[in-house]
Each structure stands twice: as C-alpha cells, then as structure tokens.
C-alpha cells in the first residue's frame, strides 16, 4: 500500500517546489487569521491560490486549503468567506477544525471534500466518527499523540482516511487543546492561528548569556557559542524541582521514517509534512527526501510481501526496513535542533 505525500506551502514558490519534488498533494492557507500558520509574509491571496492550483493540477498534484482556526462571532464571516473562496477556486479538499464551519461547508458546498484538521483534536475513532456522521468528512489528520500501535487500531475502526505527520516541527501537546501560547501572549493556534508569535519574541544579550523571551517570560538562556532556537514556549528550558532542563520537550523534529512501513501496512492513507512557514528551498528538499523514502519503502514492501511488514515489533520498528543513513542525515540537517524523534509514535517518548 503506498502512502500519499502531503506537503506544506506558505508561498507560491514553495508550492512549486513541493510539486516539482514529488508531493502528491500540497496544503496551503489564505492570508489572515484563518489558519494555523498565520505568519507575516506568508500564505496566499485568491489570485496566487488560483495560480498555484493551476500549476499543481497540470502536474497531477492536488491542493488542499487549511482553514483550521476556531472563529469567534467576530471572525465568523472571515471563516465562511474563506470556505466560499476555496469552493470557488476548485480546491481538492478543505481542512477544517471547527464544527460550525463544517456545518456551513457541508450545507453550502456539499460537493467539497472535507478533511478534519489536526486542530480538530480527534484522537480516537469515535470522535472521527462524529465528524463523518455529521459532516461527511473523508479524511482526518491525527494529532501527534498516538503510538504506532494506537494508530493501527484506530485505522481499523474507521471508514475515514487517516493522515498522520511524518516530518517537521513537533507539537508536544494535543493540537487544538493547547492554550499555552494564549496564556503567555494572548494569541493561540485555536483563536489566531499562531503559537509563540514572533511579535511577542524578544532577544536580549545579558551577562548571563543570550536570552529569549516571549511577552517578557524567559523561555531560554544560551551560553556563549550555544546554538539558539526560536523560543517556542514548550521547547524552552525551565526549572522544575530545582533542576533546569527542557521540561516539556527539547528543540527537535518529528521524523517518522523508521515507522513508515508500519504506518503503510496499518492502512494509513497519507503522510503529512509540517512547515508552511518554511522556505521554498526547505520544502523542496524535504519533499524530495520524503518522496525517496516513500518510494524505497514501497519497493521494500513489494520485495518482501506478507507479514514481515505488518509491524508487530513492540517498539513499532520493522526489521526489513532501515531508512538509508544518507537520507536520515540529510533530513537531520534540515531539522529543528538538527536532531529527530519518533515522538509519540514510540511509546517510551511518552
């Protein structure tokens, strides 16, 4: 079973890079507070989206539009206008989190394919079933909290296609259920489509070292020569019981390469790459590397059909498959913190 590769694009050049390097689908967002990457200089106007969709469709690649904030009464109309715009443009799917917007989309645009966003926070088959029964969703993106075993069990219980994250920044918290950013800065993924927003970041050079702050709260402090990362608040160093460490998570990337065959054998439909805020060069490189990994993985499955690829090892790894070292090294070089983790796919991480 082959996995579909779904890649991010924050700009038209990034969309072209993803298409040219082997994405099966690209996901984009419109400008403004409508999606979970509402960053300055990012996202598509209607004209750019139309251009991007033409470019992708001409090459057999689909385009999904993410509208994954939860609008308040004040921003509701922006949400419905975005849905209408996506329908008008002929996008291949709309990625939604908010049930109210799902109701609107299902009623007004019944032919439009709906995906439940990772921000929809559905971590079990019953939650997914609710959105299928009510709004006819055809795919759900799983939050980064399930082990490979749990993913496999969930896939067996649902008629909805399942998409999971394969590479990119790691959300430590269940997506859609995290208010850490609004607690510190007043802006959250659910409400404004941002986490640890750039406008709240301050860097200070102090005698104690370089400090990163978020709305004045010290997120991390770096010794001279130590590599400093963006102050995403769950990846800072804090003091707990008199020990200073990365108390929530280290600055690291998710990389699911080790479990790709297991995910494929479980019936997962698509692998998603995080990173609409990334450069076109990054998107092109990551897309190309993951394309190669997926093709190798599919070839390995064809070469060794049967139960060898069913993923019965307790840690989720599969014997016949080892991702090529050069592939892992190339992805690590692109990763946050230059290291990777299997995250929740691997039970001990939890």
């Amino acid at each position: 079973m082959s996995l579909e590769l779904v890649c991010p694009a924050g700009t038209l050049p990034a969309l072209r890079a993803a298409v040219d390097h082997g994405a099966d689908a690209v996901y984009i967002g419109f400008r403004g507070a409508t999606n979970a990457r509402n960053f300055p200089g990012l996202n598509f106007s209607e004209v750019e989206a139309a251009t991007g969709i033409r470019y992708a469709h001409a090459r057999g690649v689909r385009v999904f539009v993410a509208l994954n904030i939860y609008p308040s009464p004040a921003t509701w109309q922006i949400g419905t206008e975005t849905i209408d715009r996506a329908a008008r443009l002929g996008v291949d799917a709309l990625i939604l989190a908010d049930p109210g917007l799902m109701r609107y989309a299902a009623d007004r645009h019944p032919a439009l394919r709906l995906h439940l966003s990772v921000q929809g926070s559905a971590t079990n088959w019953r939650a997914i079933e609710l959105y299928r029964r009510e709004f006819g969703i055809q795919r759900a993106v799983l939050p980064r909290v399930l082990s490979v075993t749990q993913v496999a069990r969930l896939v067996k219980r649902t008629a909805v296609e399942i998409e999971v994250f394969g590479f990119g920044s790691l959300c430590v918290m269940v997506e859609g259920r995290c208010a850490l950013s609004s607690y510190a800065t007043g802006h959250s993924p659910n409400s404004q489509g941002v986490c640890s927003p750039a406008h709240a970041v301050r860097w200070d050079e102090t005698p104690a070292g370089r400090e990163s702050r978020l709305n004045g709260i010290l997120i991390d402090r770096y010794a001279p020569g130590e590599a400093a990362g963006y102050p995403t608040l769950c990846k800072g160093r804090f003091r707990v019981n008199d020990v200073v460490f990365h108390a929530l998570e280290e600055p690291t990337s998710l990389n699911a390469l080790d479990v790709l065959p297991t995910l494929a054998a479980s019936g997962v439909k698509a692998i998603k790459v995080e990173g609409r805020q990334r450069s076109p060069a990054y998107v092109g490189q990551v897309t190309g590397l993951l394309r190669r990994a997926l093709d190798l993985c599919a070839a390995a499955a064809r070469a060794a059909p049967g139960d060898e690829l069913t993923g019965n090892a307790s840690d989720g790894s599969i014997e016949p498959w080892a991702p090529p070292a050069d592939l892992l090294a190339a992805l690590d070089a692109l990763a946050e913190g230059r290291t990777h983790t299997l995250g929740a796919y691997h039970r001990p991480w939890q």
């Binding site: 909290v145 399930l146 430590v172 995290c178 607690y183 020990v243 929740a344 939890q350």
Partner: peptide, 12 residues
Amino acid sequence: LAFSARCFTARS
C-alpha cells in the same frame, strides 16, 4: 491549558 501524550511529571 494543555494535554499531551507525554507525562511531564513522570519525565521530571
């Protein structure tokens, strides 16, 4: 404020 698959108390 948030939930995770990870137990932060055990990890600490």
